[in-house]
Structures are given as C-alpha cells and as structure tokens.
Write a protein that binds this DNA or RNA. Structure first.
Lengths: 319, 319
DNA sequence: TTGAAAGCGCTAACAC
DNA sequence: GTGTTAGCGCTTTCAA
C-alpha cells in the first residue's frame, strides 16, 4: 500500500486505476487510523486553498451579517471555507487583505467595496476578486439595482401625494449611497419639485448621530412630510427624533428606509423599505467568485432587482 | 544571497546572524520584487496556520455578529485570521468543523457550544479548542455570569413590586438558557412566590413564533405584570404581542430582556436588559485560544459579570 | 494495477 | 555571517 495509491483513492481519482479490493483496503485503513490529508501540504502542491475571504465594512451591521450568513452557507456547500475581514475603517483592511491574498492564504476575495476600487491595487493582489455593489473595471462585480430601488421608494412617496420630501443620507463614501442620493434628486426634479438644501442631511451609522441629523430635518420651519433614508439604521434615527418631538409616523411624517434588515419589522409602525436580499447576495457573490477561480467565464448578470416593501410607515401627507 | 538568509531576515530572526548590509539588501529586493512568503509552505514547515475558526449558531443574530466583530479585530491584531463556521443547526457543523480541524487548516477553534460539549468529540479534533458560555471538562472555557445577570433582572422586577412574573424562554438546547430559566424559578421560590406553568412559554428565535408565545402569556386569565425574556429578540415578540392587544409597556406590563443588542434601544420604550459585552467576549475568546495554542497556561478566569441595564420598559406594576 | 521519486516553498540544523 | 541541505505531506508523472 503505497503513498500514491492512497492519494489516488482518497482524491477520488481511483476509477480504473486501482483494484476495488485495494481501494476498500485503503479506505478502511484511513477510517481506522482517522487519517486526514494535511491541508497545507495539499495546498502547497495544488495551489488551491479551498478558502475565500470576505471583506465587509462592518459585520455588526445586520445587512452584512446576513450577507455573510448566505456566503458562508454557499461556500460550505461548495467545500470552501470563508475567512472574514472586517474593514472597520477604510485604511486598515488593505494591508491586511493584501498580505492575505499575496501570501496565497486564500484563493480569492469578495470585496464589499468602500470605493471605486483602485484597479492597480486589485491587480497587485494577483488573486481572484469579486466586487459587490460597485462597478470595477477589471474584476467581475455583483450589481444591485440600487437606482431602481431608490426610484421605487421615491415614486411611492410622490404617488401618496408628498411634495416636501427630505433625504437622510449615509455619510459613507460609496457608490451605492451616491446612487441613492442621485435618484432622490432626479425624481424630485422630474416631478418639478425644487430640491431644497434644508431637506438634506447626512449621518454615519450611529444612532445618536442619526437621531440628531433627523432632528435637524424635522426642525426646519416648513418641515418635510416624508423622509427617504439611505439605510434602515438611519430610519431608526428618524423614529427616535420624531418621538422626541411627538411627531407621529405615518400621520405627520412618512418614512422610507433601505435594506429591509430585521429592525424594519421591529420598528413601530413597521418600516416601508427597499428590500435587499442579503443572504442571496452573499450566495451569488460566492458563485461568482468560484466561477472566476475555476476559470469559468460568466456573462455579467443584470443587476439584482430591489423591490420596495410597503409597510405602515408611509401614508398620505397630513392636510 | 541564499534562501536561508532571506528566511532569517524576513522572519525577523536575523539579529546577530546577518550583517546589516545584507539585511538591507534582502529587504530591498523583497520589496522590489513584491515577494511574499507562501503561507502554505510556511504552514507545512511550521505547523502553524495563523488562522482560527469560530463556530457560532447563527451570525445573523446580532449578539454573534458583535462577538465575531470583536474576535476578528483582536485576531488581526495578533496576526491571525478568523474563519467562520455558521452551525445553522446542530447537526451540520460537526462534520464540517471536524474536517477543518483535522486537516490542520486552522490552529484552533472557538466554539460557541450548542450543548454540553461531547468530550470525546473535542479530543478527536486534536487541536486547541475554547468553549464560550458553557462548561467543558477538557477545554478552556470562557464563562459569563449568566446566573448573576438573570438574578439581577428578576430582583429588579421583585423590587419594583411585581409578583406575577412570567418567563419567555428560548427553545434552544444550551446550558446558558437553562441557567436563565433556573434563576427565574429560584428567585421566585426564594421570594415565596409560586411558579405557575401558565406563566412559562418558549419560542425559537423567530419573531412570529415569539409573538405568538408572548401572546399566550398575555392571554392568561390573571395575566402577569412582568415578563422576563431569555433574549432581546424574544422581548421584541412581547412588544408586538402587547401592541396587538393594546397593552402598554411599562404601564400595564414590564419587560426585561437579555443580551443588550442594538435592538434593545430601537424598541420603544427602550428595553431594560441584561448586558452582554459581546465584542469584549469575542476578544477574550481569542486571547484564551491563542494562549492555549501557544502553550501558555491561563488560570481559569472568573465568569464575566453581566450588569443589568435599566431603561424604560420596567416600572411598578399597575394597581 | 501499483510503486518510486521528484518537487511545491519554506525553515532550521549544521557546515563552512 | 552565509550557504548547503534535509524534509514538512501531498500529488503526479513515469517506470515496473
């Protein structure tokens, strides 16, 4: 029973090369001895780690947690492991990720981009990269129909009769948020409504800050009758600020969010929001990355549609 | 310029072995060529992967997401990567984890146990294992003062004057939840209050089910004036069920949760809950695991205290 | 159908 | 101080 025979059998490449008897023998011995092939040796030989990295800005944001859930599940189905890199802030992750990729510790990387991805940088990494929710010239990217979702949200508000619509934007430098903001302004302009500076505010993803920013919007002299938020977490800030001022949702003000994280249904009234299928996005990202790693060309898919989920936080504007 | 010299320099073991000039030379060359040591080869030689696995029941639960955040941050500080395994349900993770550990793809594993850990199983793995929030005979474990937290919560309710206190338990087979339940019964008994079956319900971590279970508690003929929940997510079910019945929190019923996830402050009124320092727990788990891997013996630390955070969901019982 | 042997890229013991 | 060399455990020719 020699080394190569064992390798053949345990890698499933034994058909027509090894006798059934020998094969059985090998399997039994492996079983009894609890033998497990050493991953490092295998990687050294084959160049494949069966591991992919996932870079997200913040796992504690429920949207990313769900995406990670979907990605890990799918990766495991395909016999891959997922390594997590929490970017936390944009300066930290690059060296870490660059080192990880360059050392060949992973076969590829899913990259929830913080910004128009530096292409030189991507190339330097020399591994397969998939970008989620952003365009990248030299890497396959998984796109969402952000504009479509934002447009649906705004049109919903217009259809209800709102004209004084504010925007609470995410203070995060990413294409996806610029798209949400553009859609807001475009739809207003198309409807012949002036875009007012006083109806626009920004906040990071922290409740106290979102609450303050939302409060500024509510305290304008002629206050808005609806607020379109870049993110459900920011919508929570609106709920809090409204409550601070005894402003009722949706009677006095309508609120629309973006993401449809669990919190949307925890809020009272439940939040009307643009639904991002986070787990599905995680799965799709894994599929795209594995295809790239295995050299299967994928026709660039069309952006994932984002339906508006209408709940109780939107209604006709007050008289 | 030979292989071993390069190795010496780049592993930082060059002091007193390599001339400053040569060292500089090597570094510069490595820099220019963009040389990165191959992780697999290094692992094969050294036996260390610089990677640890983290097994959690469900990353989409905010508590675990935060724990993961803390763990990943600390691991990166210590130059380790974190591989995520989402157990999803208790049957799936074992083979996956066993394979990962046995193949030496990771140096160790943090295991948020689903159950009194099967010790034979742990040993089979043959790698370092740290168990969080559960006792394990043969592995270092990171303990939380669950009983202390639950006791504080119950005593808070008693101190407010409640005697009809219900318990909404998590339908999840884990020591930590049994401890919460025992504390509930013990405190009632110590206060001379009869433990009523009608005041006890269970639910999985799904809002519709939690809402139904909470509803049953509220619909008892002599309803409770307070509910102690095993988890903040279950407390959300109570809020929903109360709202369905126009029962006011805290005027008609007080609610206490467990975890202090972000949702606790999203709820209105904000939830009184037992605070688990999730990120800190993740960090501590990494510290414990790395200590074990590096052979540093750690005196078993005392359980992490869990303070009760009192917010607006608890008050005196109605007259 | 099975075995022998080379070599993936690194580290560490040892020789120079 | 620097170079030579063996070997980590596997896969994969190639020879028997």
């Amino acid at each position: 029973v020699s080394q190569s025979t064992v390798s053949l059998v345990l890698s499933g490449k034994s058909s027509g090369r090894v006798t059934a008897g020998t094969e059985e023998l090998v399997r039994r011995a492996a079983q009894e001895l609890g033998y497990r092939p050493n991953a490092a040796a295998r990687t050294l030989r084959s160049g494949r780690t069966q591991t992919v990295a996932l870079v997200v800005p913040n796992v504690a944001h429920p949207y990313f947690a769900s995406m990670l859930l979907g990605a890990e599940r799918r990766a495991r189905e395909k016999e891959h492991a997922v390594m997590l890199v929490d970017a936390a802030d944009d300066h930290v992750w690059r060296p870490a990720m660059a080192a990880t990729l360059a050392s060949r510790a992973v076969d590829g990387c899913i990259f929830y981009s913080a910004e128009p991805v530096n292409e030189t940088f991507l190339h330097t990494l020399g591994r397969h990269v998939v970008v989620v929710e952003a365009h990248a010239k030299d890497a396959p990217s998984l796109l969402l129909d952000i504009d479509g979702g934002a447009t649906a949200a705004m049109q919903h508000l217009l259809a209800l009769g709102h004209t004084r619509i504010a925007h609470l934007g995410a203070a995060y430098p990413k294409e996806t948020f610029r798209l949400r903001f553009s859609a807001y302004r475009r739809i207003l302009r198309q409807a012949g409504i002036r875009v007012r500076d006083a109806y626009m505010a920004q906040s990071h993803f922290a409740l106290p800050e979102a609450r303050t920013a939302a409060g500024q919007l509510l305290d304008v002299s002629l206050p808005p009758t609806a607020i379109f938020c870049d993110d459900d977490l920011l919508a929570v800030g609106v709920y809090k600020a409204a409550r601070d001022r005894s402003i009722r949702i949706p009677d006095d003000i309508s609120v629309v969010g973006f993401d449809d994280i669990d919190i949307a249904q925890v809020l009272e009234p439940e939040l009307t929001t643009v639904t991002l299928p986070a787990e599905q996005i995680g799965e799709a990202a894994i599929d795209l990355l594995l295809a790239a790693i295995e050299g299967r060309e994928q026709a660039p898919a069309s952006p994932i549609p984002l339906p508006l989920t209408i709940r109780r936080s939107t209604s006709r504007p007050p008289q």
